[in-house]
Design a protein around this nucleic acid. Structure first.
Length: 492
RNA sequence: GGUCCCGUGGUAGAGUGGCUAUACAGAGCUCUGCAAAAGCUCGUACAUCGGUUCAAAUCCGGUCGGGACCUCCA
């Protein structure tokens, strides 16, 4: 099925035509590992995950997915600097080498990040690569040199800058994000910048070392410029190196549109002499909390660990974060996660019933696109997902179909077909288990009371039956009567 | 100052010129001894004021309110 996406370049939803037949390459702007990522950050990565899964499952493409990890920038340097209050105590004392401190800090938070996304159902096996910026310094220097050679970069005060004015003479600057060059606000940040650039709109390609900062050597025109790569150059260089240019889809959060993506694109065009870095640029909207922005600087964020400590099921967190459309803001609340959980469990129960029906302990389906006879359910859900990853509609289709599925009337092969369809849907959502329902172990004395109650009930000794039911409840279990038997479940 | 986005039922969240998603919560019903569970049914919502139209929540304009971005941010 053809997948359409909203493209920031065209400002419209367009069908994705892969550059290489049957294959989609995706580059996602990953985290800067100076801190624990919060669930707002996670939403953006979950969006990329849904995108790549839809490409695999609905589009039927092979996917080459790269997500970078930024391990060198102002913040990682500041937080790992000698005496920084942000240095994690878990890492023990800092050492005398700023590069070593930097590496220890970023490694620490990288591991935490990888752990968090794994818990959120983003699978490592789906990545072609997760490059660290510091492993690609060579290509960054190389690109910087190319930009200088092409006449779009200049050295000033030990740093290298991108000359936006020169670039604008030959290219469009502002393809992803409308840039009002005449109305650049003279902001505090610009005034505070101590580097010497020709124009406020110019951005740094290579940043000169200050004090004791970690650095790499870089010889430009015979002069060594100890320093480090600018933030934007990292993604330009790594995407070129790992995916080749152009590639199909570039993702990130909305805040990446400008300046990050605009500059990334400009660098690629200026240095690599290409027309496009990526055919599609897609951006995930922000997660809000209490109707406002969630961010590190406002200190109103939750981490994955926070949520787990509050007793939330991580699958419910994933489900609630992916259930809105990625281009709309989503308001995060704990009640919302709980409600999402109740919704999620309904499909889970269906899967359990289907497994029971087919006498299977577990089911492993095919993770490729539509099989021989697509059921109405698969068609409608996939169609919604193929239209700009319309998850709300996909879920609506799923739940609208739910009452139509008469479990009792299905034969084994039909039940298996449903399992296959749900398996496919779950290859995108990844929030359901395809193993039989495991009930909590029932203590023997509770089981005895239960069977005594069942007997009392069948003998119509109602008072006894009710008393025994109360006793079961006081043991923390609830007895659910069926036609021919009962189940015991722990009270949640 | 500039650029944009959004205001939908108790809540979340789609849709988009007429047939008014979906979920959670709530109400009623069915089934059961009663409950629980399950199933069914229901609410008749689209900030506000004008305009266009046979018809507007949907298009246009004004107003009010909220939010984001403009070189730190997913």
């Amino acid at each position: 099925m053809i997948v359409s996406l909203y493209n920031a370049l065209s400002k419209s939803v367009q069908p994705v035509k892969p550059l290489t037949e049957g294959e989609i390459s995706i580059y996602s702007c990953g985290p800067t590992v100076y801190n624990t990522a919060h669930i707002g950050n996670m939403r953006s990565f979950l969006f990329a995950d849904i995108l790549q899964r839809v490409m695999r499952v609905v589009g039927g493409y092979g996917v080459r997915w790269v997500m970078n990890i930024t391990d060198i920038d102002d913040k990682t340097i500041a937080d790992s600097a000698m005496g920084s209050s942000s240095w994690p105590k878990e890492l023990g004392a800092q050492v005398d080498d700023s590069m070593v401190n930097l590496r220890r800090l970023t490694e620490y938070y990288s591991e935490m990040f990888l752990n968090d996304i794994a818990r959120l159902g983003i699978e490592r096996k789906h990545f072609l690569a997760m490059p660290r910026a510091t492993d690609y310094i060579d290509e960054m220097r190389n690109l910087t040199q190319k930009i200088i050679d092409a006449g779009y970069g200049y050295v000033s005060g030990g740093s290298v800058y991108f000359n936006v004015a020169a670039y604008r003479k030959t290219h469009t600057y502002g393809r992803i994000f409308h840039v009002d060059m005449e109305n650049f606000r003279e902001g505090v940040r610009i005034d505070a910048d101590e580097y010497d650039r020709d124009s406020v709109s110019d951005f740094v390609l290579w940043k000169a070392r200050k004090g004791n900062e970690p650095f790499w050597d870089f010889t430009v025109a015979g002069e060594n410029l100890p320093g480090r790569p600018g933030w934007h150059i990292e993604c330009s260089a790594m995407s070129k190196q790992l995916l080749g240019l152009p590639f199909d889809v570039h993702t990130g959060g909305v805040d990446n549109r400008f300046p990050h993506h605009e500059d990334e694109l400009a660098q690629c065009c200026a240095g690599y002499h290409i027309v496009e870095q990526a055919t599609f640029w897609c951006h995930g909207e922000f997660l809000e909390v209490d109707g406002g922005k969630m961010s590190k600087s406002l200190n109103n964020f939750y981490t994955v660990t926070d949520l787990l400590e509050r007793g939330l099921d991580i699958r419910d967190v994933r489900f609630s974060l992916i259930s809105g459309h990625y281009r709309n803001k989503l308001n995060f609340t704990f009640d919302g996660v709980v409600a999402a959980g109740k919704t999620r469990i309904r499909i889970q129960q269906l899967i359990w019933q289907l497994l029971k029906k087919t006498n299977l302990k577990s089911y492993i389906g095919s993770d490729i696109s539509v099989l021989g006879e697509p059921l109405f359910l698969q068609q409608s859900v996939y169609t919604a997902l193929a239209e700009d990853l319309h998850m709300p509609r996909a879920l609506a289709e799923l739940f609208s179909a739910l009452p139509k599925i008469m479990i009792a009337e299905l034969d084994i092969s039909q039940a298996t077909q449903y399992l296959e369809v749900l398996w496919g849907v779950n290859c995108v959502l990844n929030v359901w288990e395809f193993t039989e329902q495991i009930f909590a172990e029932i203590p023997e004395h509770v089981a005895k009371i239960a069977s005594a109650r069942w007997l009392a009930k069948s003998e119509k000794r109602w008072a006894d039956a009710d008393a025994l039911r109360d006793e079961i409840a006081s043991n923390g279990f609830v007895m659910k009567d069926g036609k021919d038997g009962y189940t015991l479940e722990p009270v949640p």
